[in-house]
Design a protein around this nucleic acid. Structure first.
Lengths: 300, 300
DNA sequence: ACTGAGTGATGCCGTAACGGCATCGCAATG
DNA sequence: CATTGCGATGCCGTTACGGCATCACTCAGT
């Protein structure tokens, strides 16, 4: 069965109109070129060249074959070039599964900054609940995940963990806005919006409340930080959520994030992770490193 | 260098997600498939598959490669199919060089009839002077030629020769129209249009007149039969031209062709010919046979 | 007519590429 | 721990390939 080298032989013969001349150009003996051409003709069942006393000339079948050969040569070169691009991070796709809190600000900003340097790298981001992230990784729908306090899972390997505090978020003109930190008991007098179990921070809240006589009567419970945030602004209330790598300068709506200072309220872990047996493509691995660096910077 | 069989190996592995399963489907041992894949990966410089405990999975580079491989497989099948079409006369191009007299009626009609049965066969027809036809054949611009009384040429091989009489063409209402044949002397009383040296028949006329006291004073001399014909109709004159395979029922403008019956006026040879060392493509050879048959029918 | 040059085709042979058989090394499962 | 399933590897016989030498034919010049 003919291969690329043989296609180059045929191409050279067609161009020079002579088996010997082509062989010279290819730095092989003419008998080798001749024999390969005869083999191909045998296989196809028809002559690709008319033999003339002073060289050869393409037949009609040869014209069809040479068009195919030249296309193959060009296609293979393009394919190798594309793979080379992939190797040098000039090309690729990064698929991320992340919890909702990363969507408003941190991830868009981080991806945009990375793309400044790698414009041909595409991203695909799935925002989903905490439980879905592991599934996406394990089913190879995503390459890396950003999840809060993930359950133990032998198939998931953490790449980085950063601590995240539970914060109370209030509008800039809220009575508590001027404080450096608050306690849960400070917030009870206002309408409360709390995360449901699919968001980061709910487990921390539940665990803390279970050990206290304190009881929360939330006005709102939601799986959407955006929902909770806007409710807090409108109602003059307080919503709770992990910090999620948001520096104060970047909080949406000018909200203030006030760390909860209650003793016994544990911090959570924001985890960058992947499926444990994966070998990440170059572009993804490069982005994961960049993400780790960014997370470290923004949580220090 | 990878060839089509190896591309099929890679394709089968990608589809089944397992080297052993693919090997079964391909009826080869898995070690052979594995080794070919490792060879390709070596050559390209990157892994095409991630090795998992229960099989393999395409890498990003592998995705690019498989797209290329599948395209190659499809392209080669299409190319073989096209060459097969060529072999079975389902496809092809026929290039003809012919003298002008064939253009009005005979060649169009013959080609059209042939294309009823072979619609994918294309034609390219060059109408040119007698001297140009051999040049076109020898320079491979045309595959077959139709020429009148061609000069001897070792590089040109005749396929068929049919005799052609020199005729006088007159309009249907011309005084000579009712005759079965005429003599040159019968025509002298009318305006005469004669062919120049690039048309068939002129050599016959010249040869005959050189041996007689008769002298023609043509009102028109042209290299275009259409020109001469229309002149004869308009002027109530006579034009001369070889029969050129035109049966009476098909003469343009309802003209009558009256054979010249002068003793000593030789007949000419209409020749179907080709370059002597050529091996004609199937479609062309088939058409040449059809042309021979048609010429025989219409000159008998 | 003879000779030399140029061409594609073919015989022989050593090396490279390939597939088959058997086995190894590792992970997952019961 | 033993078994199963998987890709990887060693060894070997067969097939594919290129190199060297030569053959067969055509063409051009003397």
């Amino acid at each position: 069965m003919y291969n690329l080298r043989l296609l180059r032989y045929v191409d050279a013969v067609a161009r020079s109109g002579s088996i010997r001349k082509a062989a010279e150009q290819l730095n092989v003996v003419s008998s080798a070129v001749n024999r390969r051409i005869l083999d191909i003709e045998d296989e196809i069942g028809t002559a690709l060249f008319e033999r003339r006393p002073r060289g050869v000339r393409l037949t009609a079948a040869g014209e069809l074959f040479i068009a195919y050969a030249r296309k193959q040569i060009a296609d293979s070169e393009r394919m190798l070039s594309e793979i080379e691009d992939l190797q040098s991070v000039r090309r690729g796709e990064v698929r991320i599964a992340a919890i909702e809190g990363m969507a408003a600000e941190f991830l868009p900003r981080t991806i945009e900054a990375f793309q400044q340097r790698h414009p041909k790298i595409r991203f695909r981001v799935y925002i989903c609940g905490r439980g879905d992230i592991h599934t996406r990784l394990k089913e190879f729908e995503a390459d890396i995940g950003l999840v809060f306090n993930p359950p133990a899972d032998a198939e998931i390997r953490p790449l980085l963990e950063v601590e995240q505090r539970l914060c109370a978020f209030v509008a800039p003109d809220h009575p508590l806005a001027a404080r450096e930190s608050v306690r849960l008991s400070d917030c009870i007098a206002y309408p409360l919006a709390v995360p449901d179990t699919s968001l980061g921070g709910r487990a921390l809240l539940d665990e803390f409340l279970a050990r206290r006589s304190l009881r929360l009567e939330p006005a709102l419970e939601s799986n959407s930080f955006e929902m909770m945030r806007n409710f807090a602004i409108k109602s003059g209330g307080v919503c709770f959520q992990i910090q999620s790598g948001m520096p104060p300068a970047h909080l949406p709506g000018g909200m203030h994030a006030l760390p909860l200072s209650d003793r016994g309220l544990r911090r959570g872990r924001l985890t960058l992770c992947m499926e444990h047996s994966r070998s990440l493509p170059v572009a993804t691995a490069r982005f994961a490193e960049y993400l780790k660096q960014r997370l470290r910077e923004e949580t220090s």
